[in-house]
Amino acid sequence: PDDEWKERLREAEEKNNWKLFEELARKAGVSEEKIEEWKRRWS
């Protein structure tokens, strides 16, 4: 299951679909801290 969400995150990233990325990350149990960090790195 871990690989599956990583794959989906990669797809979201490729499409630059931040909303989807964020949603998937939350569902995968990624901390808000980590998500914010990704946001900063991404923008």
Rank of each mutant, 00 (worst) to 15 (best):
A25I: 06
D2T: 12
D3S: 11
W5Q: 05
W5G: 03
K15F: 07
W38T: 06
P1C: 15
D3A: 12
E7Y: 03
R41E: 14
E7P: 06
K39T: 02
E14A: 13
K15Y: 05
E32A: 08
W18E: 01
L9F: 13
E33K: 07
E11R: 07
I35T: 00
E36T: 03
P1Y: 13
E32D: 08
W5A: 05
E37S: 02
F21G: 00
K39L: 10
E13A: 15
S31I: 02
D2Q: 09
E4H: 13
D2G: 12
L24W: 15
R26K: 06
R26W: 01
W42D: 01
D2A: 08
A25V: 05
A28S: 06
S43Y: 14
R8A: 14
N16T: 05
A12P: 03
A12R: 03
E22M: 06
K6Y: 14
A12Q: 05
R10H: 10
I35G: 00
V30E: 01
E22V: 10
E7T: 09
E36N: 07
F21Q: 00
V30A: 03
E22G: 01
E7L: 05
E13G: 15
L24C: 13
E36W: 06
S43P: 11
K6F: 13
I35C: 01
K27M: 14
R26D: 00
K19H: 13
E13Q: 15
K19E: 14
A12S: 06
K27D: 04
R8I: 13
E37R: 02
N17F: 14
N17T: 05
K15A: 12
R40E: 15
K39D: 01
K39N: 03
D2M: 10
N16C: 15
W5H: 05
L9E: 04
D3H: 09
W38F: 11
S43W: 15
R10F: 07
S43A: 13
W18M: 05
R40Y: 06
R41F: 14
S43Q: 15
W5N: 04
D3W: 12
E37L: 02
R40W: 08
E14W: 09
L9S: 04
E11I: 08
V30H: 04
E14N: 11
R8K: 11
L9P: 02
I35H: 00
L24P: 00
L20N: 06
L24Q: 05
W18V: 02
L24T: 06
R26M: 02
K15T: 14
S43H: 15
L20W: 14
R10I: 09
W42M: 08
E36Q: 10
G29N: 03
K27Y: 05
E33Y: 05
E23M: 07
K34D: 13
E22Q: 03
R40F: 07
W38K: 03
V30Q: 01
G29V: 00
K34I: 14
N16F: 12
K39H: 10
S31A: 05
L20I: 10
L20D: 13
E4S: 11
